[in-house]
Design a protein around this nucleic acid. Structure first.
Length: 153
DNA sequence: GCCAACGTTGGC
DNA sequence: GCCAACGTTGGC
């Protein structure tokens, strides 16, 4: 089983939004980065777990735990001119962009701020803490995952 | 709002 | 294939 971290700007899609969905399940659409696409399409498997990460907001940090419930399939929002993330170069016969479906497992008792994560040596190599990282989907190591859940509930 | 970091684009 | 220009991300 693999572990992931998935970023969302709460102004666009928040953990409240996910929680209020039927089945607390949602398609993780709108990712338009090739590295992230490869992970969504090829690597993320049913049963994998992922942190819900609040980005570009007042207190960036980890807000909850999700499970992958449907593996990579073409992102329909890439074909729809009405959509913000419409990609006119995307050929429906050879889709460029992919997504997975996620389901909320639980919220954390409180958001773990990025600033707190940074203070922990065992997390020093965590991808989301690296300066300049711009991936919206990234792997988390087993060690990092368990360290975080041991230190914050 | 600023700006560093990084991805993408396009001319050559 | 190089690389400058440009756009976007995201923390602060």
């Amino acid at each position: 089983m693999n572990y992931w971290l998935m970023k969302s700007d709460p102004g666009d899609f928040s953990i409240d939004d996910l929680e209020s969905r039927r089945g607390q399940t949602a398609p993780w659409d709108g990712v338009r980065n090739y590295q992230a696409r490869n992970m969504l399409r090829d690597e993320m498997k049913i049963g994998d777990l992922a942190f819900f990460y609040n980005s570009s907001c007042e207190v960036p940090g980890i807000a909850g735990i999700m499970e992958i419930v449907k593996e990579g399939y073409p992102d329909p929002t890439a074909f729809d001119p009405e959509e913000e993330h419409y990609d006119p170069k995307n050929d429906p016969d050879k889709p460029t962009w992919y997504l997975v479906d996620v389901k909320l497992r639980r919220r954390l008792k409180r958001v773990i701020p990025l600033t707190e994560l940074k203070r922990h040596k065992p997390l020093a190599n965590m991808k989301v803490l690296q300066k300049g990282n711009r991936l919206s989907v990234m792997p988390v190591t087993r060690q990092e995952w368990h360290y975080i859940l041991k230190n914050w509930k």
